[in-house]
Nucleic acid binder design. Structure first.
Length: 292
DNA sequence: ACTCGTCAAGCATCG
DNA sequence: CGATGCTTGACGAGT
């Protein structure tokens, strides 16, 4: 491969390996209070600039915020008035992010089911996505920001679920600013995920590890097209040796990265690859030290 | 300072 | 039919 590694930017998630700085502190629901929310969110937000600085210094182009950056923000017990105290804290972090060139993402959890047949599940999912949306807005509202989401469970009928997902998406057009859809290893392969993404007019995040477990016929040209003017974002991880199938390893196996470069082909440039490896920044450094 | 049971949420799968 | 696992493990009571 004579591709230049500088043409592929890498992404770090949540914190550094030593956890000295983290954007994912939380607490127990039982101790939910305005004071506790503000205190924890302040810690998470105060750690964001040093993490962004680390990314800038080490040529890391993307950072995934912790889901708990504002703990319980979409929970019914969270008073919306609490945001008044949080917004100035975001303001400070925003100043350090803007101009850094670091792309932000956030990855809401497995409970988000926009395709669920249960309306209360869809409503709760929208509340959580609105929270993630607000976080990205408060941190600069950069259109390159990404809310990473899976289509979700199949609910017994993939096509009916895809149709419900698309309908809910179109009824909530604000979702389109940041949302992107990632293929998963159980329910929705890359081909079906791309189908939903195209119906919504949003980017598709190609996760090559999930694709290896749950494969389908797709090429990068069509995936890239789903992103329009945004930089395509991808995920890579490697199977943990001796671990359960699907479990992430500490490092990225160079052979897996070479597979990704082969999949990208002539388009192995102007893309961002989130490195889902437990050794975090050390796994990124190991990839950066290779001559691809 | 340390261990270790438990933690908001949905869903499918495994035993 | 209860336990497990998911993009990531963190909290906190108990010792």
């Amino acid at each position: 491969m004579e591709k230049k590694a500088t043409q592929v930017r890498f992404g770090l998630f949540c914190s550094l390996r030593d956890n000295a700085h983290s954007t994912n502190r939380t607490f127990r629901l039982a101790s939910l209070s305005r004071e506790r929310v503000v205190q924890t969110a302040r810690q998470n937000l105060e750690d964001l600039p040093p993490l962004i600085d680390y990314c800038v210094r080490h040529d890391i182009g993307m950072f995934r915020l912790g889901n708990a950056i504002v703990p319980f923000a979409s929970h019914i017990g969270f008073d919306p008035a609490w945001w008044e105290e949080l917004e100035p804290l975001f303001e400070t972090a925003r100043h350090r992010i803007e101009g850094s060139g670091v792309r932000l993402s956030i990855h809401p959890g497995q409970f988000i089911q926009l395709g669920s047949p249960r309306s209360e599940v869809v409503e709760a999912s929208l509340r959580e996505l609105a929270y993630a949306h607000r976080v990205l807005q408060l941190l600069g509202d950069n259109p390159q920001g990404v809310i990473t989401l899976h289509v979700g469970a199949a609910h017994g009928d993939h096509h009916a679920t895809m149709a419900r997902f698309i309908q809910t998406f179109h009824a909530n057009d604000w979702l389109g600013r940041f949302l992107a859809l990632e293929n998963d290893e159980f329910h929705f392969c890359a081909g079906q995920t791309l189908e939903v993404a195209n119906a919504c007019g949003i980017g598709m995040i190609f996760d090559i590890f999930h694709h290896s477990i749950n494969p389908s016929e797709v090429c990068f040209k069509t995936i890239k097209a789903s992103w329009g003017v945004k930089r395509p974002k991808l995920h890579i991880s490697s199977q943990a040796p001796g671990g359960k199938r699907g479990m992430h390893a500490d490092w990225i196996d160079p052979e897996d990265f070479e597979s990704l470069l082969r999949f990208l082909g002539d388009d192995a440039r102007n893309v961002d690859v989130m490195i889902e490896a437990k050794a975090k920044e050390d796994a990124i450094a190991a990839l950066q030290s290779q001559k691809w």
